[in-house]
Design a protein around this nucleic acid. Sequence first.
DNA 1: TATTATATTGACTGAGTGGTCAGTTACTCA
DNA 2: TGAGTAACTGACCACTCAGTCAATATAATA
Lengths: 180, 180
Amino acid sequence: MGSKTREMILKAARKAFSAHSYADVSMEDIAALAKVRKSLIYYYFPSKEDLFKEAWDEAFHELEDRVFGISEEDGKYMKKVKRFLRSYIDFLRNDRQSLRLIEREKTRFYSEKSQNWQHIKNKYDVFVQKVAGVISSETGKPAAEYARALTDIVGSSALLPEGQMSPDTIELIITKSIEH
Amino acid sequence: MGSKTREMILKAARKAFSAHSYADVSMEDIAALAKVRKSLIYYYFPSKEDLFKEAWDEAFHELEDRVFGISEEDGKYMKKVKRFLRSYIDFLRNDRQSLRLIEREKTRFYSEKSQNWQHIKNKYDVFVQKVAGVISSETGKPAAEYARALTDIVGSSALLPEGQMSPDTIELIITKSIEH
DNA sequence: TATTATATTGACTGAGTGGTCAGTTACTCA
DNA sequence: TGAGTAACTGACCACTCAGTCAATATAATA
């Protein structure tokens, strides 16, 4: 059940977690952003970790929908990889905040062992595998490492301040390095 | 003056700060690693921030030396950019821990306003500018954004677990995207 | 209106944190 | 040997933070 207050909290969490690292965001920060007392957050979410997980999941599903949910109709005359890359970069352009949230704690996946963090890590890994699938379906070659590099460069550019590295540049670099 | 104990603490700090984020590393952690009481750290370093700064500086100067300190003799027949890229990737290969430390808190540069963090940010920015200089000296075109992308992709790959994205792949991608 | 379920709060806890400091040990050199 | 200095310690402080909970306000319903 998505109560209005719950939504507000989740929205505030997404904003906070995309602007600062997990450790640097306190529950008080989120409460203040959502204009709510801290204790109320615990009425809707069992813990900080769970709140983060839900915020991350939300942002991540938006990314997945955007990048893999493109109907076959769209860009009929565009190659699969190009079409994919275009929507990925568009996501960077239009939903930078979500991408930030997704990317910010990437290194934590590998040190934290709790359920929530492993859940996130697994989802991300599957995503990278899917990206590799798209690429190798066109090049015919395995692309696991290449997909990792691709998601990494798009992701890290999202964490940079706006204007420091334009999505166009990213697209150019990736396109160049992918063709033949 | 570099006392033996001071060196030990610094070494422990470098290890800790390259394995976990600034916020996740406590002075107790570093003390334990260095086999020293926490209070002793404050005998040699005024604060956690200063300790981090010194650890970062050390690692960073190693990177600079390696990447820009190559004598003209070396690789006489290699193009400047290729030579530069080669040493950069070699640093990733051989001193991954240092590169991790350098890259890990990159996003913090932009939110923290204290002297120490700005010092770090400025040094890094100058580095990127130098990289841009190397590239544009050969291509003749401005390369600010490209340099930012390049350092970003090398840096972020250092944060990945070993073996997930090989330095060779990185080198290949960058080389491909740079030529022509 | 009285009763019950749902929302919301403020005051609190306990663990951990960066940092301080008075004091103790170990070393130096007159 | 003894005084002075450098290296080191343990106890402590102020503060932050995630999380708890009893108490209250609000809404729903009978």
